[in-house]
């Protein structure tokens, strides 16, 4: 009998998926730092943001959140960028919000599931990068124009492009594993 998916479950399996996801996000973020966004200085394209989004969709919101939150902390620690809690929380939300559709997904290859994931990927990037950018108003005293043009837009646009392209590809590849191994 198929086990019912719990939205907020965090058992041993989820601990391991979250840890794997966070480590993967950190490694891929560093590996893909070479792809810089033209004209936006230090902002890299970072295709790795698709990892917390996909882990949220595949394993639930807590796994998605930890993948983004801890993964971003580790990536920054490995790159020597320091520790920026508000951007780590924003990255956590990138994974948590797509994770809200986790219990509703029956097939990862169905176009309905992919559309749902795409919508929540955009929402996740909007809320996650919005929160992280707005926190700069509190921390740095930046005004709303600076927050929108220097912080939010470069991060939001690159995150949704990455998410919209890579999350469906990861979902289809994961569907093949699910079907082959019989896991849920």
């Amino acid at each position: 009998m198929e086990e019912k998916k719990k939205l907020w479950g965090f058992e041993t399996k989820q601990v391991v998926f979250a840890a794997i996801g966070a480590a993967l996000y950190a490694v891929l973020a560093i590996a893909t730092n070479m792809l810089q966004l033209p004209g936006a200085g230090n902002v890299s394209i970072r295709p790795a943001v698709a990892i917390p989004m996909f882990f949220g969709v595949a394993f639930g919101p807590i796994v998605g959140f930890i993948t983004g939150f801890v993964g971003n902390i580790l990536a920054d620690l490995l790159s020597g960028y320091g520790f920026w809690l508000w951007w780590d929380l924003g990255n956590g939300l990138l994974g948590l919000i797509p994770g809200l559709i986790y219990p509703t997904i029956e097939s990862y290859r169905a176009s309905k599931s992919i559309w749902k994931a795409e919508i929540f990927v955009v929402l996740g990037a909007l809320v996650g990068m919005g929160l992280a950018s707005l926190s700069e108003m509190w921390v740095s005293g930046a005004d709303i124009n600076t927050v929108i043009f220097a912080n939010f837009l470069p991060a939001f646009i690159s995150d949704i492009i990455n998410g919209l392209i890579l999350v469906p590809l990861l979902m289809i590849a994961y569907a093949a594993i699910v079907e082959r191994s019989g896991r849920d």
Binding site: I20, V27, T32, P47, I161, I165, L166, L170, Y174
Partner: peptide
């Protein structure tokens, strides 16, 4: 940008799926 991101898929997908399997 789109082709750059798309070209990352053959790298990201096998690494991610192997990690999930293990």
């Amino acid at each position: 940008i789109f082709s750059k991101i798309g070209r990352m898929a053959p790298l990201m997908i096998p690494v991610t799926m192997n990690a999930i399997l293990s």
